[in-house]
Nucleic acid binder design. Structure first.
Lengths: 218, 218
DNA sequence: GATTACCAGTCGTCAGATGTTTTTGGAAGG
DNA sequence: CCTTCCAAAAACATCTGACGACTGGTAATC
C-alpha cells in the first residue's frame, strides 16, 4: 500500500505557477494573470492564490506591483538564492571561489571534452583575441567570461555549470575582474592558450595547472 | 525631503519573523506562536500573517503542520536553497565541485592562516589519525570532513566557508566519500599531512598542489 | 495641445466563518 | 494500575465578501 498524503492546496497552486515559469510558458518579464483570473481558472479562492504567489515572490521568481500586476522576475530559484548570497559577499571572495571552480572545471574538461566543446573553446578564444586587438574592453570581458563558461560546460557537470554561471553573471554585474583588464592592457596572455590546448589534448594535469597558474598570477 | 515608500505589511511581518529565526530567539525545532497569537501580538490580520509565514515556508525556514503548529526547520535560507539544488545533482558532480573549493581553500589558507587555524588543523588531523588507528569508520569520516572544513575556515573567506559547509553536509547525508574509505582501508595517507604542513609553512603553491593531488588520486 | 479628472483593473488588507487534522485529557473498561 | 476509546480544544487550511490603495489609460477640460 502506498502512503497517501494530503497535499496543501496552496502548494499545489504554487507548483503549477512554478511550472508555468520554469517551462517558459510565462517568460521573464511577463505579467501573469490577475488574482481574480487565476481564482476562476484554478478553482480556488483568492486567498489561496495569494499565498501561493507570495511563496514565489519570496523565492524571487515573481514580483508584485500594487495597482498593476504580478510579473515574472526569474526562472530559477537556486540562481536567485545564490546571487542573493553573493551580493552580500566581498567581490574578492567571490572571485576566489570562482577560480576554485575554474581549476576543477579545467581538469574535468580535459578528460571529458567533446569535439563541439573544443570548437566552442576555440571560437571564444578567437573572439577574445579579436576584441583584445580591437581594444574593445567590453567585448573582451564578455569573450573572456564566455571562454571560462565553455570550460565549465566542457566539464559536463551540470551543477558546476549552474554555480559557475551564477557567479560569473553576478560578478559581471558588480565589478570587472582586474586581472582580465591587466591582461587586456598588457596584451600578454599565454595561459588561456595553454589551457585550451591542454583541454584539447586531454591532459588534465596540465589543464588544472594552467588554471591554477591563472590564479597565482593575479 | 526624503522619499517615502510604502512597505508591504506582509513583507514587514516576514522580516520580523525572519529576524526572530536568524537571531536565534526562535531556535531550530521550536514551535512558533500560533497564527492567532501573532495576529494580536503584531496587530495585523491573520491573512497577512499567513502570507508572511507562507513565504518563509517556501524559503525552507519554517514548516507548518495542520492541527499542530508551525516549526522552525532552518536558519539560513541560502543553505536551504543550495542543498535543494544539491539533492537533485549527481553525488559525483557534487564531489567534483567540493574538490574545486578544496583546492582554492588550500592555497588561500596557506597565505592567511592564523595560529589558531593551524592548531585546529592539527587537532583535526590527530583526531583523524586516531580514528583510523581505532578503525572507527564513522569518526574517521567526521574528522576528515572537519579537517577540510578547517582548511576552508583558514582561508578566511566567509562565502567559501558557507558553500563548503553546505556541500559537505549535504554529501555527508547522502553518501560517504569513497576515496576517504579507501584511504581508511589502506591506512596510507600522506597528502593530508603535506597539505597541513604547507598551510602551516605558508606555501600556497605546495598547498594547492597537495589538494590537487588529492583530487587526482581519486 | 497640454493638463487635469476620472475610471477600471489590480494588488493589499481585513473580518468572520467553516472544515480538517493533531493533540490531549479524561472516562470507561479490563 | 494500565490500556483503550472518545470528545473537546487547539491549530492550521480554506473560503467568502468587503474595502482601501495604487497604477495606467482615457476622456473631459482649459
Amino acid at each position: 500500500m502506498r502512503k497517501v498524503q494530503r497535499v496543501s492546496l496552496v502548494e499545489t497552486v504554487g507548483a503549477q505557477l512554478r511550472d508555468e515559469i520554469t517551462s517558459g510558458r510565462w517568460a521573464l518579464g511577463d505579467r501573469i494573470p490577475s488574482e481574480g483570473e487565476l481564482t476562476e481558472r484554478l478553482g480556488v479562492s483568492r486567498a489561496s492564490i495569494r499565498e501561493a504567489v507570495r511563496g514565489l515572490v519570496q523565492a524571487g521568481l515573481l514580483a508584485t506591483r500594487q495597482g498593476d500586476g504580478t510579473y515574472v522576475t526569474a526562472s530559477d530559484a537556486t540562481d536567485v538564492a545564490i546571487r542573493r548570497r553573493l551580493t552580500v559577499a566581498d567581490d574578492s571572495h567571490v572571485i576566489e571561489v570562482r577560480r576554485g571552480l575554474d581549476i576543477v572545471a579545467a581538469g574535468l574538461a580535459a578528460t571529458r571534452r567533446t569535439e563541439s566543446d573544443v570548437a566552442a573553446l576555440q571560437a571564444a578564444l578567437q573572439e577574445r583575441a579579436a576584441a583584445g586587438q580591437a581594444r574593445d574592453e567590453e567585448a573582451f570581458v564578455a569573450a573572456d567570461v564566455e571562454f571560462h563558461l565553455c570550460v565549465a560546460r566542457a566539464a559536463h557537470n551540470p551543477l558546476l555549470v549552474d554555480l559557475y554561471s551564477s557567479i560569473a553573471r553576478a560578478l559581471a554585474e558588480s565589478v570587472r575582474d582586474d586581472r582580465c583588464l591587466q591582461v587586456f592592457a598588457s596584451g600578454e596572455d599565454s595561459w588561456h592558450d595553454v589551457l585550451a590546448k591542454a583541454i584539447d589534448a586531454g591532459d588534465a594535469s596540465v589543464a588544472s595547472a594552467a588554471s591554477l597558474a591563472l590564479l597565482e598570477n593575479s
